[in-house]
């Protein structure tokens, strides 16, 4: 007998931090908060892995799709006004953009090479953005990485342990950073960041 067909309602995107962020100013605020915290949601995130050094065809497809090249050096990312591609390992990248289109279908429709794996991670990652004059000091509290502005440049990205959580940290701007984390750790990350930001005074948006 054929399986019964169920009509399921469309899946509504719900952030792992939905209802968890209380907006306001907290901690040791003197004049202005040293840290501003907000969540980036919803994002479209696609992982690409070529397994071997990327072929010319692949590089051309990406260039045509996003109008810039995939970053080939470790710990870097390439960016346009809406899309960012991050190097996350040898021959592995994350494409990240605010959710405005069906990114996974778009990428799949352009790449026919079966040896390239394309995985939709949009629902699997959460992202917290921190801004403010004390962000680099905050990051130093959680990771043994050199966050000095001369060492950790804009568009620089690292995967490391941040407060013992496996995280991807990206520098968007002088003092603006994005932290990506597995969805299940989103609340833990938020709490760790809030705790670390207390001494600088912080505002959640």
């Amino acid at each position: 007998m054929a399986d019964k067909t169920y009509i399921l309602p469309p899946i509504k995107r719900l952030s792992a931090l939905a209802g968890q962020i209380e907006s306001g100013r907290f901690g040791n605020i003197k004049t202005e908060p040293g840290i501003f915290i907000k969540e980036n949601h919803p994002l479209s995130i696609v992982q690409l892995e070529t397994r071997e050094p990327p072929a010319k065809d692949f590089l051309t497809v990406i260039k045509n799709l996003f109008e810039f090249d995939v970053p080939l050096s470790p710990n870097t990312s390439s960016v346009s006004d809406k899309t960012r591609i991050i190097w996350t390992g040898p021959n592995r990248w994350l494409i990240i953009e605010p959710e405005t289109r069906d990114l996974i279908s778009l990428v799949k429709s352009q790449i026919n090479e079966t040896s390239i794996s394309i995985v939709d991670l949009s629902h699997a990652r959460s992202s917290i953005e921190i801004d403010g004059s004390m962000t680099r000091d905050l990051l130093l509290k959680g990771a043994a990485i050199d966050f000095h502005p001369e060492a950790f440049l804009i568009n620089h990205c690292v995967q490391t342990t941040f407060f013992n959580l496996s995280a991807l940290i990206c520098c968007l701007d002088e003092n603006r950073f994005n932290i990506f984390i597995a969805r299940g750790f989103a609340l833990d990350l938020l709490q760790k960041v809030q705790e670390a930001a207390e001494e600088f005074g912080y505002e959640t948006l």
Binding site: G89, Q159, S166
Partner: peptide
């Protein structure tokens, strides 16, 4: 002196 394999598990996973 010992030669060993490690994996960069929370980094690039290589």
């Amino acid at each position: 002196v010992h030669q060993e394999y490690w994996q960069h598990i929370t980094g690039c996973r290589s």
